[in-house]
Simulated assay, not measured.
Amino acid sequence: MLFDLPDPQTLYSALVARDPAYDGVAYVCVTSTGIFCRLSCPARHPKPENCRFYATPSECIESGFRPCKRCHPLAPMAQKDPIVARLLDALDKSPAYRWSEQDIVRLGLDLSTVRRVFKRHFGMTFLDMARHRRLREGFTTLGEGGRVVDAQVTAGFESPSAFRAAFARLLGRAPSAFSTTALLKADWIETPLGAMIGVSCTHRLHLLEFIDRKALPRELSKLEKAVPGGVGLGRLGPTDQIASELASYFSGNAARFATPVQLHGTAFEREVWRALMQIPAGETRSYSQLAHDIGRPTATRAVARANGVNQLAIIVPCHRVLGADGALTGYGGGVWRKQRMIEIESGFAVARRS
């Protein structure tokens, strides 16, 4: 669990008030109907004795409840939040604009509310997201062969040095450190859970990681040592393919990834990663269960370490591994993302059972 839920009386009061503050925090399962809902659901209120509260949709589904067709508890709430919709629309219209707190205030929005809403839905503030979006514009320019000064202008930075510094903070190196003749190409992929970096050769995907993961610079360095020829900027076929498959995954249409991948790791790590790829979407395992699955029941800690160095996020689904008590243990891309993906995949589990 990410946190301890409030007591049932508090949650029932929030249900009666249809309090949107609890969206994504708690869900109500109604024993008389067999369905589960958001606490803001517009349906008639159930009796208190018929209510059971859980922190995630996956817990509701595992308890035998099906999602409500009125409040759609498996759909991302960010799409329905008017504050999020308004700011994302503004960001789409002017991706290179240098947003500030004053801009948010001028829109008549409360800074603390905007910060809280974006942190809840995306694990980052709106201003963080806007900075990433600006960097993406510059990243794309560089990938198309543009100069650093062109990328700086496209991304809305005041100077090439400021752009280089922001780029280096994100990827651990300046733009000039990326080879123009590299066999591997890195490109930016947008997802509902934040931007990712995909690195491919012409035949396989070698790395897929969230852009804000602290280990990303180290992962890029490790990849350069494994594949001679360095890493450059640009998009190759496997990156195109995984971008399309990720869009299908996040829209709830398919959880299967057919993009050819290259696993860079020890024989043991590759064994663990292949076992992870056998876990169906909508199901989870503990580290000890995974160790038993590969015939190494005493290797629980080693399995956990192998999970932590996985360089193909989502494709090698280390987010499907929980603690022995069912807790959402640490995840390199952020525990909030782990919870979101488990919630998304609950929908695939429901579809299989239908």
Score class of each variant (00 low, 15 high):
residue 296 R to D: 12
residue 19 D to L: 04
residue 239 T to N: 06
residue 140 T to G: 01
residue 111 L to A: 01
residue 205 L to G: 02
residue 86 R to H: 08
residue 346 S to M: 13
residue 182 A to V: 13
residue 334 G to H: 04
residue 11 L to F: 06
residue 300 T to L: 10
residue 143 G to S: 04
residue 251 S to V: 14
residue 155 A to E: 04
residue 202 T to M: 11
residue 341 M to E: 10
residue 15 L to W: 00
residue 80 K to H: 15
residue 184 L to I: 03
residue 280 P to D: 04
residue 96 A to D: 06
residue 87 L to I: 09
residue 298 T to Y: 06
residue 284 T to K: 09
residue 108 G to F: 00
residue 232 G to M: 07
residue 12 Y to F: 14
residue 132 H to D: 12
residue 229 G to K: 10
residue 337 R to H: 06
residue 171 L to T: 10
residue 54 Y to C: 11
residue 295 G to S: 07
residue 122 F to W: 11
residue 124 M to Q: 05
residue 21 A to G: 03
residue 162 A to F: 01
residue 22 Y to C: 10
residue 113 T to C: 02
residue 337 R to D: 05
residue 137 E to T: 00
residue 288 S to C: 07
residue 275 A to W: 12
residue 227 V to G: 05
residue 107 L to C: 07
residue 86 R to M: 05
residue 40 S to T: 11
residue 301 R to Q: 13
residue 44 R to E: 14
residue 176 S to R: 05
residue 38 R to T: 00
residue 351 A to P: 08
residue 240 D to C: 15
residue 61 I to Y: 08
residue 264 H to W: 11
residue 29 C to K: 07
residue 127 L to P: 03
residue 157 F to H: 13
residue 282 G to A: 00
residue 183 L to W: 09
residue 109 L to K: 01
residue 109 L to H: 04
residue 2 L to V: 11
residue 262 Q to E: 14
residue 222 K to F: 02
residue 28 V to C: 11
residue 338 K to Y: 08
residue 313 A to Y: 04
residue 194 G to L: 08
residue 134 R to H: 08
residue 336 W to I: 13
residue 10 T to H: 00
residue 130 A to R: 06
residue 184 L to C: 04
residue 120 R to Y: 00
residue 37 C to K: 13
residue 177 A to D: 11
residue 25 V to E: 07
residue 105 V to L: 07
residue 240 D to V: 12
residue 122 F to L: 03
residue 37 C to N: 15
residue 36 F to N: 04
residue 340 R to D: 09
residue 154 T to L: 02
residue 270 R to P: 03
residue 16 V to K: 05
residue 55 A to F: 06
residue 292 H to L: 15
residue 261 V to F: 03
residue 285 R to M: 08
residue 213 R to P: 02
residue 20 P to C: 13
residue 294 I to K: 12
residue 138 G to I: 06
residue 39 L to H: 12
residue 297 P to Q: 11
residue 105 V to C: 00
residue 47 K to W: 12
residue 186 A to I: 03
residue 345 E to F: 08
residue 146 G to K: 02
residue 31 T to W: 07
residue 258 A to K: 11
residue 208 L to Y: 04
residue 189 I to A: 01
residue 183 L to C: 02
residue 153 V to S: 12
residue 157 F to D: 03
residue 119 K to P: 08
residue 190 E to H: 13
residue 93 K to L: 10
residue 232 G to R: 10
residue 279 I to G: 01
residue 37 C to P: 12
residue 64 G to N: 12
residue 118 F to S: 00
residue 163 F to V: 02
residue 39 L to G: 10
residue 308 G to E: 14
residue 240 D to N: 13
residue 214 K to F: 01
residue 61 I to G: 05
residue 212 D to N: 07
residue 253 N to L: 14
residue 91 L to D: 03
residue 88 L to Y: 11
residue 142 L to T: 11
residue 189 I to H: 05
residue 140 T to N: 11
residue 264 H to P: 10
residue 221 S to K: 07
residue 273 W to K: 04
residue 177 A to G: 02
residue 244 S to D: 14
residue 126 F to C: 08
residue 139 F to I: 11
residue 53 F to W: 03
residue 243 A to V: 12
residue 36 F to P: 04
residue 5 L to F: 10
residue 24 G to F: 03
residue 174 A to E: 11
residue 210 F to D: 03
residue 146 G to T: 01
residue 108 G to A: 00
residue 194 G to W: 10
residue 281 A to Y: 01
residue 95 P to G: 06
residue 58 S to G: 03
residue 328 L to M: 02
residue 139 F to M: 14
